[in-house]
């Protein structure tokens, strides 16, 4: 069985050097301008906060275990690979933006200026990961704030770090349970909600919400079809009987003459 890959991002260790974004842009052949927000040319970006000048938060696709985007895409352009990355097939995409509309982390970016637009987002260096290599950003990180590895092992390590230095971290690994778990795990010294993380997300995967309804379709068709046909049969039969009776009555009258 393939081990699910993941990244552990320790916000307390990040020094804001932006090496992750630089490496990402080289790996994905994107313009090398430094960017502070996710964009079609920035699959990852460091966010800063006035309240916490020393804190930098890496934004990127969270690579959900059960991705909402992959579930909603009508043509299956977004898929979760067995290794962990959620990847995008531009040749399938019809540009409906349901993935953007439904992503609980507001990650996918759109090329609004193009007449042949597409989605842009981190693909967790899927080509490297498939070969058993680490992601470009984790390789570039000078402090180890971004660490690549197997998801299980990274979770264990996160717990060990929290245990080794009590009080340094808030008591939560963001991404462990959010929407059923993600491949990007965060440790933080500052409460997550103050760093713009959505902390109210449910802990079960979102796709179940629509699948619970969609899976009833065969029943609706079978029961509905039978019901409608039955109604038609009864109402139609009523007419037939009425016509037959009228005919009989008429025949009877003719007979009398």
């Amino acid at each position: 069985m393939i081990q699910k890959k993941a990244m552990l991002i320790d916000i307390t260790m990040c020094i804001g050097c932006n090496a992750c974004q630089k490496a990402c842009k080289v790996q994905n052949h994107l313009s090398d301008v430094e960017e502070k927000k996710l964009s079609p040319t920035a699959y990852t970006a460091l966010e800063t906060f006035d309240k916490y000048p020393d804190v930098f938060v890496r934004r990127m696709c969270q690579h959900c275990e059960d991705p909402t985007c992959a579930s909603v895409c009508p043509v299956g352009a977004l898929t979760k690979t067995p290794e962990g990355p959620v990847v995008y097939a531009v040749d399938k995409c019809i540009g409906c933006r349901y993935c953007m509309q439904s992503c609980p982390f507001q990650v996918p970016r759109y090329d609004w200026t193009s007449i042949n637009p597409r989605i842009y987002k981190c693909i967790l260096c899927t080509d490297l990961v498939k070969q058993g290599l680490p992601t470009a950003c984790s390789e570039a990180c000078p402090t180890g704030a971004t660490k690549f590895g197997n998801r299980d092992e990274l979770l264990t390590e996160a717990y060990e770090r929290m245990k080794a230095e009590p009080g340094k971290y808030v008591d939560k690994i963001y991404g462990q349970k959010e929407v059923g778990g993600t491949s990007i795990l965060y440790l933080s010294g500052v409460p997550f909600e103050q760093l713009g993380f959505k902390t109210t997300l449910q802990t079960t995967p979102l796709p179940a919400l629509t699948w619970n309804v969609l899976e009833k379709i065969p029943n609706v068709v079978a029961i509905g079809g039978t019901f409608l046909y039955g109604i038609w049969w009864i109402t139609n039969r009523r007419d037939e009987v009425k016509q037959y009776e009228e005919q009989m009555k008429k025949n009877g009258q003719d007979h009398d003459h």
């Binding site: 579930s71 909603v72 352009a77 995409c93």
Partner: peptide, 16 residues
């Protein structure tokens, strides 16, 4: 690419 929905199926998608 709208015709993609005819041959590229994702039965989990409501939009499909």
């Amino acid at each position: 690419a709208i015709w993609h929905a005819i041959i590229m199926w994702n039965p989990h998608s409501v939009m499909f």
